[in-house]
Every structure is written in structure tokens, then in C-alpha cells.
Design a protein around this nucleic acid. Structure first.
Length: 423
RNA sequence: GUGGCCAUAGCUCAAUAGGCAGAGCACCUGGUUGUGGCCCAGGAGGUUACGGGUUCAAGUCCCGUUGGCCACCCCA
């Protein structure tokens, strides 16, 4: 066993993975551009308080346990970011971004850290593509965030994806709903499994997305948030559904879909892919009109989504989607003798400058050995430069697929290769 | 945090009933003077995850630890 290994829940991304990563991230950038989102990057480390601000005590304790927190050299408590949104909201307020033309549309890509028990598609460090739309209450904003997520999956080649949506109301209508919900479960208190008794106490909405069969039976008759929305929330939800229908976006209202935080309002949604087992949620998002305020800014509506990149990569593999191949060296310059080697180095340099991926054989090994290297590197052409070629000022260009060989003047090789690459 | 399954070479896996740690793939070198793939020969690569225990003898049985997978919990 190696002397050192990655920490529990962390992993290396090896070269074989990168066709997938570049495919996903390339598409993410592309879509963000097309949707008019601007990129923002915030520090990986922030004040711990930022991540635990204004949470109910029970929730704060749980989250605290999953936060990578430590004391800085000056004694300040700092933490690795467990999510993007808090840092982006902090930046929004700190830089007075509320004075920018609304809506402010931001996206970010980078690592997040949570001290969780590792599991399928869940690591202690994961990468997220995050989009936030701030300053707009129109359900079309919710729609835009949802479209962004949906089309990312669609354009990556995902099949059978659809939305699960719900509206969890707002500070006006939610408290009454939660009261009704708690009352309902209290009349069935003895039928509730231990976990759900606890949930009912700590975070009642969470009882709705329980995995306990006994509780799920009770859910059939449980009050639904969509039936307890205030006028504005109901209208917002109706309008959003009208948009989804108009745009042919497949969705289901799922009254069990919730978020556990107070600043979430109205729309919550997830994108689901069929046949992905227990972890069928590809991403989740929602509206958080109270969030900017909670970090000290003006009251600002907002809606956002977080999309886990590792989970996409896993799903792409599970669905057998082939990402485009990454560029490989096209030419390897082989050489024999010191002068030839210099010529090979110059040739490689010229090819690279012209945009042709090229490498030089290293060392002073036999031509045979160098050809083996060229074969393993998968290059299309071996440019052989030895005494004869040097004397004539040419290279022997060997096509590694057909074995065909032709000589070409050294200063014409760039053009020779480009012509054959169809450039 | 709770529970189940698992851990042998870089990878995939063997190793009778507890009795000398192996194969395939991958890697390196060679198969003569300037030519790859296939083939052949050779090489390197292991404290059997780690620590303890039982035994004449442990990869194999027992305990602990670490790590992985799966489910729960949680999911900003």
C-alpha cells in the first residue's frame, strides 16, 4: 500500500476522466454564456459565521458538524465553503452589486467541501456548477434557472429527464401550513418511526421527504403546501407551471419536495433522471427571496441552482454517453544523432506554434524503440530525422496507420501535416 | 453519527481443508547494421491495507484500526 493516500471522501481525477470533465464544464460555460450569466469566483475560505448565519439552532448544530471549520493563525474561525450561494450573496452585498442593472445573473464553478460520510456520488470535496439569478420575482426567472439546468443535461445527452417541482410558500403562508402539517402528524404521532418523530420536532417539512414506509402511508392524507399557499404564492406557482407547459418542459408537482431552510420560498425543484437508483436527483434548486437580507443586504428576490459535476460524470458513464475525445499528439519527431535531434526539436516547436499537437521522442534510443513510443502515443505521423534526412534537409514522414512513407522538406512539414489534417 | 458487505502487483482477479504469494492486462528491456502494432524471450513490480491474537505454520481463522462500496442520517 502507498505511504500516502487521499483523505477519506476525497479523490483524484485521473487523465482518463478528463474527457468527461471537459465535456461537462465546456457545456456549462457555453450554456451560461448563451443564457447571459456572468462568471463570479469567491474564495474557498470564508468566515464560519457566513455559513451558519441565522439558522434555527437544531439545523445549525447539524450543519456545523459537516462544516470543515478551523481556527486561523489569528484565532478567527474560518471554514471551507460547503455551498456557493452564501459566498456569492456575501460578494453581492460587499460589492454593492444591487446597484447593477437587474437582474444580476451570476454563475460559478468550483469545489465545495462537506464533512459527510462518503457514499454513492457523494464526496467530501465535490465540484459544482452554480447559477444564481438575483433581483427578479417574475416566475420567468425561476423558469430560466430551470431551463439552464435542464438544457445542460439535455445537451450532454441525458435521456428521460424531467422536473419535480413544488411550492413551499413564503413567510406569509408557510407558518400556517407548517402548523397544519404538525397538527396532522401529531394526531398520528404513535405511528411515526423514531426518525420522523425527531424530524417533526427539528424540521417538520423534512418529514415530507422521509424514506420510512409507515410515514409515507400517512403522507397520502397529509396536508400539502400547494393547498395552503397565499394568493401571491399560488399565482406565482400557477404562472410557472404555465411557462413550463408552454415550453414543453416535462414536470411533475411533487408535494414531498422540500427545502429545510427558512430563506427558501415558493419554488423548489429538482431534475431527475430515471433509472439512476436511489440518487436519482441530478440537481436541486429553488427560490430564496430572503437570502440576501440574511447576509446584511437589501431585500432581494433570487432563484438559483446547484449542479454537481461528479454526479453528472457518473451518470454520463452509467448512460453510456461518449464524450468527445481530447486532442492527442498528431506528430512525433524521431531522431538519430545530435544534429538530427536539434532538427526534431525545431520541427516540433514549429508544429506546436502552428497549432498542431506534436511531441519529440526523448532520449537516444533506437529508432525501433522510438517508433514503439510513437505507436503508443497514438500519433498519426512519425517524422523521422536521421543522417540521410539531415543531409537532404528533409524528414521521412511515416503514416502510422498505413505504414506509407514519404519525404518532405523540413520547412514544409507544417504545411504537409496541415494539408492532410484537412486544415 | 448508525448498520451491512468488502480489502492480494498499477488494473481485473487466482491461490485445495490453514502448508513455498500467482496469472492476464499494463509497464521496461531485448529478438544485430534505420522502422511501430502481432509474436517470442527476459525484467521490474508485494511487509497479502495497517496493528495485534490463535497456531508448528495465517492471504486464509479471531479482534481492533484505516480505507472502499451500499443503505440510513443529513443534504446549504
Amino acid at each position: 500500500m502507498p505511504k500516502f493516500q487521499t483523505l477519506k471522501g476525497f479523490k483524484d481525477v485521473l487523465p482518463e476522466e478528463f474527457p468527461y470533465w471537459r465535456f461537462v464544464l465546456g457545456k456549462a460555460y457555453d450554456l451560461a454564456d448563451r443564457y447571459g450569466f456572468q462568471q463570479i469566483d469567491t474564495p474557498v475560505l470564508e468566515e464560519t459565521r457566513l455559513f451558519l448565519r441565522g439558522l434555527q439552532e437544531g439545523t445549525a448544530i447539524i450543519l456545523d458538524k459537516e462544516l470543515y471549520s478551523f481556527e486561523d493563525l489569528d484565532g478567527a474561525s474560518i471554514s471551507l465553503r460547503p455551498e456557493f450561494t452564501a459566498g456569492i450573496m456575501r460578494a453581492y452585498v460587499q460589492h454593492g452589486m444591487h446597484t447593477r442593472p437587474k437582474p444580476v445573473k451570476l454563475f460559478a464553478i468550483g469545489p465545495l467541501f462537506r464533512h459527510e460520510k462518503p457514499q454513492a456520488g457523494r464526496f467530501r470535496q465535490h465540484t459544482q456548477f452554480n447559477a444564481e439569478l438575483l433581483g427578479e420575482e417574475d416566475p420567468a426567472a425561476d423558469l430560466e434557472i430551470m431551463q439552464l439546468a435542464y438544457n445542460l443535461y439535455r445537451e450532454l445527452g441525458f435521456q428521460n429527464i424531467s422536473f419535480q417541482i413544488n411550492s413551499i410558500g413564503c413567510p406569509v403562508c408557510r407558518p400556517t401550513y407548517i402548523e397544519t402539517l404538525v397538527e396532522y402528524f401529531e394526531t398520528h404521532y404513535d405511528e411515526l418511526p423514531q426518525v420522523d418523530k425527531r424530524r417533526l420536532r427539528v424540521n417538520p417539512l423534512r418529514v415530507l421527504d422521509t424514506k420510512e414506509a409507515a410515514t409515507r402511508a400517512l403522507l397520502i392524507d397529509a396536508p400539502k403546501s400547494v393547498d395552503h399557499l397565499c394568493h401571491d404564492c399560488a399565482e406565482h406557482f400557477d404562472t410557472l407551471q404555465g411557462y413550463l407547459q408552454a415550453l414543453d418542459l416535462p414536470y411533475r408537482v411533487n408535494f414531498r419536495l422540500v427545502r429545510g431552510f427558512d430563506y427558501y420560498v415558493r419554488t423548489v425543484f429538482e431534475v431527475w433522471a430515471e433509472e439512476l437508483g436511489a440518487q436519482n436527483a441530478l440537481c436541486g434548486g429553488g427560490r430564496y427571496d430572503g437570502l440576501v437580507e440574511s447576509v446584511g443586504g437589501p431585500r432581494t428576490p433570487g432563484v438559483g441552482v446547484g449542479i454537481g459535476v461528479e454526479r453528472i460524470v457518473l451518470s454520463l458513464k452509467a448512460q453510456g454517453v461518449q464524450p468527445p475525445a481530447l486532442p492527442r499528439p498528431v506528430v512525433m519527431a524521431l531522431h538519430r544523432g545530435f544534429e538530427a535531434r536539434l532538427a526534431a526539436l525545431k520541427l516540433t516547436d514549429a508544429l506546436r506554434s502552428a497549432g498542431v499537437p506534436a511531441v519529440t521522442a526523448f532520449g537516444e534510443r533506437s529508432l525501433k524503440s522510438q517508433l514503439k513510443s510513437a505507436n503508443k502515443a497514438g500519433v498519426r505521423y512519425a517524422a523521422i530525422i536521421a543522417e540521410d534526412e539531415l543531409a537532404q534537409g528533409v524528414a521521412t514522414m511515416r503514416d502510422m496507420e498505413t505504414g506509407e512513407q514519404t519525404k518532405a522538406p523540413l520547412d514544409e512539414i507544417v504545411a504537409w501535416v496541415q494539408k492532410r489534417r484537412g486544415g
